[in-house]
Write a protein that binds this DNA or RNA. Sequence first.
DNA 1: GCCTGGCACTCTGTCCGTGCGAGTGCCAGT
DNA 2: ACTGGCACTCGCACGGACAGAGTGCCAGGC
Lengths: 340, 340
Amino acid sequence: MAHDERRLEVLRAIVQDYVSTNDPVGSKALAERHDLGVSPATIRNDMAVLEEQGYITQPHTSAGRVPTDKGYRLFVDRLSAVKPLSVAERRAIERFLDGAVDLHDVLGRTVRLLAQLTRQVAVVQYPSLSRSAVRHVEVVQVAAARLLLVLITDTGRVEQRVVDCPVDVDPESVRELRTLLNSAFTGAKLADAGAKVPDLLETAPTHLRGLVATVSATLLETLVEPSEDRLVVGGTANLTRGNALDFPGTVRPLLEALEEQVVVLRLMSEVDASTVLVRIGEENAHEALTSASFVSVGYGSADRALGGLGVVGPTRMDYPTNMAAVRAVARYVGHLLAES
Amino acid sequence: MAHDERRLEVLRAIVQDYVSTNDPVGSKALAERHDLGVSPATIRNDMAVLEEQGYITQPHTSAGRVPTDKGYRLFVDRLSAVKPLSVAERRAIERFLDGAVDLHDVLGRTVRLLAQLTRQVAVVQYPSLSRSAVRHVEVVQVAAARLLLVLITDTGRVEQRVVDCPVDVDPESVRELRTLLNSAFTGAKLADAGAKVPDLLETAPTHLRGLVATVSATLLETLVEPSEDRLVVGGTANLTRGNALDFPGTVRPLLEALEEQVVVLRLMSEVDASTVLVRIGEENAHEALTSASFVSVGYGSADRALGGLGVVGPTRMDYPTNMAAVRAVARYVGHLLAES
DNA sequence: GCCTGGCACTCTGTCCGTGCGAGTGCCAGT
DNA sequence: ACTGGCACTCGCACGGACAGAGTGCCAGGC
């Protein structure tokens, strides 16, 4: 029916205008700025219907209309085409990320890049430990009865733990231990590492049993502990951009949630690498984020997402552009980490 | 002269009142809240002198007085005693920092602790590479012609770099290389490491020369590069606390400067571990920080500062408390890193 | 049946004038 | 040298008037 179609067109126009002007948009302005082929009065009727259906709302009588969360949702799902990035932007991504010297650097550059590209707050998760594989385990003796355990994953992430042993350890044992651990764990997915411990304990020479047990315990703790998942945040200054209406009250709770990390990590846990996930306003199910939207996607090769990255901003954001930027950056980071 | 003394007392009272109430303070309120033993009229005369000397100013005619940067400076230098931390606070520091599992964790906890204690933005610098000593160098072969170099310092910091070799490397050479590097560098201050390279090259067996040269080059790059100094920032949500007057305009430039890191690191480069450094407003010589104060101190043992930490907030801050907190936390972190 | 032009209505943001309160500076008196 | 008193200056909060934007509704046209 031509009706419904035009009504959606009106909704799209409202979203686009509101996103770009930051003012509630009225029927007259809409008719002027878009070729809808109908008069303001007709648009008003459509808007009345859209409002009744819950897609738009007016801040107060006799102001223009503003999209609701539901309206943005419809817009994202059905009314927007993902905007391809310009050549200049693609090149910027490459130039920005190439030349990174280590994982920390890669993620730091990524977060700055995303923040700059989208003009929103960017978040990047460290490659998940449990989804990585062990590249190398290193044991360093730092004192007679104290060892430093260093775990290097194939994504370049490095974890370290100090292990206090009940008795002194001689250097030869350290060497054996290193060999033992590496042959047991190297190449294994960290998620599977736990299963290898009993085996390892059995095959270990008797004089190393105790040591292996102590060290394995710490190692497992390191691997399993998912709370240790890290997050890099950047571009928080972008929160102060734009209208005060974007975040009712203040940006304070949002800043706190971003520092809390746990909140964002939980949201990020749902991502996969194939589709860009958009959570709008109330959909976020966390108080501090109810007036914000979260656009995220997993990075890594298709079969396993190493982690997630995304941007956080006001619900009034340019979804097509941000989704495109997030996806493009994730792809590039995925390649970068896969080949290193 | 009794005059001057009372005048300073008035200045102290003004600073204290203004910090706690956030309102320009007038002569009447001052007389009521402090036992200065004189009438408001007298205080007014003193205030007129203080204003003429540049220690205080009035936002507009017929509002109370507000301390200037110069006023705060005098207050910090001569009028304030460092307020000792309460037992509860000391205990909080211990409880908060104990149980950290690695360096990243220590610094993360530190920054959260400082932010919470002072209700300001907290910054903590990673232990400086050049002032640390090498604990261990690890070489891991990740491909035929690609090595991963891992450097572990005595402060628990871990740096890693990928090295691409011109020719394939056999595993035996990797083992020799590891031994070689460790015997050359272990225990050496990173600042001195550069000097050891020529020696190393000479003593290296002929078949390893090329490899050692390549690897050393990357290693040196890692060590010397001071731009890689890292910063942990926390408590940015505290910027939105307090009056809008605290930061004229917005907090935006400040947030940007904090993310820039370079700016803060430069300020931090001057700290040493013995005295708490306070930079007030314009003293900061960076545009974004001219309406902010920076309280910092070095941590580490007395003879060598490993890095700096501090807080950033409005010039209108509680200097004695913040200085005490910064110093106490720095001491504790210093101990923690020294013993690990 | 759908669209359009017109019209009355409502509401907000803004501007302006007023009054009030806080605070000052100055002066004369002790 | 300090104090009380007094006139003066502003900023700010309050309130009314006004203009502008936008709506809902209705009657008429295609």
